[in-house]
Design a protein around this nucleic acid. Structure first.
Length: 424
RNA sequence: CAGGGUAUAGCGCAGUUGGUAGCGCGCGACAUUCGGGAUGUCGAGGCCGCGGGUUCAAGUCCCGCUACCCUGACCA
């Protein structure tokens, strides 16, 4: 009995959360973008009611925007869980201690800290990334080789006091990031997992609809490895410059475009084409960089103390939303890939009969439908449908009802066709 | 951080030689409309970014500050 009530409760809650009709949401679309929103992604996402700017580089995510973020998170989460990762949520407020051990609490070393004071005295930081705290955290849980390997990730708001926030949600001072950290007993195992993450990232970007635009890119590797890998999505307004050969089997960041690297990669400068791109992911073999200074050790089979090998793997979740918005938009508005779109259908009823049948349709398909039930003229609804950019627009009117059908329009191609109501 | 620009209604803008603020969109009511951002009538909405100053009088002139945008530098 209680179980049934519980299940019904979940179902109702689900229906309440996911349904959305235009007349009931507080969100409005804008004909013109605010003048301080000049980047295409920021302008369109604002006009279409996905985001709202609080200040430079700081945004609110409104109901539609939140759904996009959640869809991106779900895809990442599914692919990471598949390779054995565990999700956590760590704190944003940071105790300076572990950061002081690695030298990274210094403003000279890391110049993007937001720092604040405790009222009882003492300084705190707002996490720009989480290597130190995760390493510190796992000291409490890793003691034996039997505890390893371990892969821990989170979706976290990061704070970075960028000198200049810009480009809509592509470079913010507060942004959503997925950060994964791996822990190993050997370099071979780190390499093995690193390769698994490379593949998982490929699947993630594929599912996000930017697979053929996103390339694993050689970038500078810091002190402990020759290279790191970035995942760069080709984008005219991207901040990075990449070079690639004809079949794009070799892609490298401008920062490592030098004779030595070219030789290493077996390509020559003449064969490389230049393009701009946005960095959507970065993977790094940290090895002992953090585990050594912070003392993250384990006992091996022979009872010897060993230092843990680490890797870290980031994906800019909110930046991805901006990249996808920016990349696929046309002159009418946003064009979401189906996998990240907040809803699949933009439903419009025209005329008394059209609206009545649209209501009926909506009752059956709430979870995937955004219902424009406003008392507005068709033209306005079509304009907003284009702006909001859901994959399909579904129009029900006397005209389509005469055929017992609804008109289905593909936002991307603009193609329309009538489909029988019974077949939807 | 350097250089350039902007700040007036929810959004976009106008505001002359200083005289107490206007337009379009949006919003409310009514009527007529209803397949690509309708039309008409009436209406609500403003500490003119903040703080000083000059003046009988400042959105407008002067000084200072702040925020925001662009280019660059910076950027796990």
């Amino acid at each position: 009995m209680y179980a049934i009530i519980y299940i019904i409760g979940i179902f109702l809650r689900y229906a309440i959360i996911v349904s959305m009709r235009f007349s009931k949401t507080f969100v409005k679309t804008l004909r013109e973008a605010p003048k301080d929103e000049t980047a295409k992604n920021g302008a369109l996402l604002t006009r279409a009611g996905y985001i709202h700017k609080e200040m430079a580089g700081v945004y609110d995510y409104l109901p539609l925007g939140l759904r996009v973020l959640e869809n991106i998170k779900t895809i990442i989460r599914e692919e990471l869980n598949k390779i054995g990762c565990e999700e956590v949520l760590m704190s944003s407020l940071q105790n300076p201690e572990p950061w002081e051990k690695t030298g990274r609490f210094s403003d000279q070393e890391v110049d993007i800290w937001f720092k604040t004071e405790l009222s009882s005295g003492g300084t705190l930081g707002l996490a720009p990334t989480h290597e130190e705290p995760i390493t510190e955290l796992l000291k409490s849980y890793i003691s034996s080789y039997r505890d390893l390997p371990l892969y821990v990730y989170q979706f976290q708001t990061k704070f970075r006091n960028e000198l200049r926030a810009k480009s809509g949600i592509l470079r913010g001072r507060e942004f959503l990031m997925k950060d994964l950290y791996s822990f190993h007993t050997s370099e071979e195992d780190l390499n093995r997992f690193y390769a698994e993450v490379e593949k998982a990232y490929g699947r993630i970007f594929e599912r996000l609809g930017i697979g053929d635009l996103t390339f694993e890119t050689f970038a500078s590797g810091g002190i402990f490895s020759k290279y790191s890998h970035e995942f760069q999505t080709l984008l005219p307004v991207g901040e990075d410059t990449v070079y690639y050969n004809a079949d794009k089997s070799v892609v490298l960041n401008k920062e490592v475009l030098n004779p030595e690297v070219l030789t290493d990669l077996g390509v020559s400068r003449e064969d490389l084409e230049e393009n701009t791109a946005a960095e959507v992911g970065n993977i790094f073999k940290l090895k002992f960089k953090y585990s050594e200074p912070l003392g993250l050790k384990y006992i091996d089979e022979k009872n010897a103390q060993k230092t843990v090998y680490m890797g870290c793997y980031g994906i800019g979740v909110s930046r991805l939303m901006g990249v996808i918005a920016e990349r696929f938009a046309d002159n009418k508005g946003l064009v979401w890939p189906e996998s990240v779109a907040p809803f699949k259908y933009y439903l419009v009823g025209i005329g008394e009969n059209g609206n009545r049948v649209a209501e009926e349709f909506y009752a059956e398909h709430k979870t995937e439908t955004f219902f424009d039930d406003r008392d507005s003229r068709p033209g306005e609804k079509f304009a907003d449908a284009d702006l909001i950019g859901l994959p399909y627009r579904l129009v029900i009117s006397d005209k389509t009802l005469a055929e017992n059908s609804a008109e289905l329009t593909n936002r991307q191609t603009g193609e329309s066709k009538l489909i029988k109501l019974s077949e939807i």
